[in-house]
Amino acid sequence: MSLWRLEYLRLVRTYRVWILLGIFGFFAVLGPATAKWLPEIVERLGGGVEVAVPPASPELAMAQYLGNALQIGLLAIAFVAASSLAFDANVEMATFLRTRTTVAKILEPRYVINMVAAVASFLIGSALAFVLSALLIDAPRIGGTVIGSLLVALYICFAVSVTGLFASLVRSVPGTALLTIGALIVLSIVGLIPAIRPWLPSDLVGGYDALINGGDFVYWRAIASAALLSVGAIAFSVYRMQRREV
């Protein structure tokens, strides 16, 4: 039994990984389905009222997937990551680990496995949305989908790092998760300022839609800031937790 297996078991035995897969899988089905059949659904439920609905397109299907999945998915990712990274929330369990190994060794598998689980869930959902969109409507741009998915994957890693940062500042799991969500929302609001937006990690999410729609790749600054801020957040969390008393 290693700390890596401990984290793997936490994901599997507590159904956390199935929750993540379920959320992204559900929206991967819902996105293309609503894009395909939304005009008919609206027409049947409209009761004679005319509602303008965009025509079904693979771009709309993928946008539906990302828009819905990332909202609920980020909330789930924050809670799943917080339940692992905020290990000081339970003093006795923290005592067990801290008296046997270093904080860095405790956190290493927790960061990696939570990032892998969250990113894999999103990518599986993205691939499923791609396939369903191709079957139901038309194939989205494969290059845009792949690169856009990788941009969102980096954003998810950033979100997990932010969760770790807050886990080092507060001790509670809900507190850590809610602060993470709050910080990501604030980041999105700050991103409304055009001059700052290209530098923010939140711009990576916009890259998904833009690249699937055939837009240019202009995300180097967001990639750099997301990578740097993630590394900084992880390093800070290790530093803080090493100095924290239990």
Binding site: M1, L6, L9, T14, V91, E92, F96
Partner: peptide, 28 residues
């Protein structure tokens, strides 16, 4: 190697007793 027992020990509820001790062995 220092062994520590807190006053109210708690472990991840989804681990077995054997896994808890095995984890401790692997770490220390």
């Amino acid at each position: 190697h220092i062994g520590v027992l807190p006053d109210t020990p708690r472990f991840d509820s989804w681990l077995t007793a054997s896994e808890v001790v095995e984890l401790s062995r692997a770490l220390v």
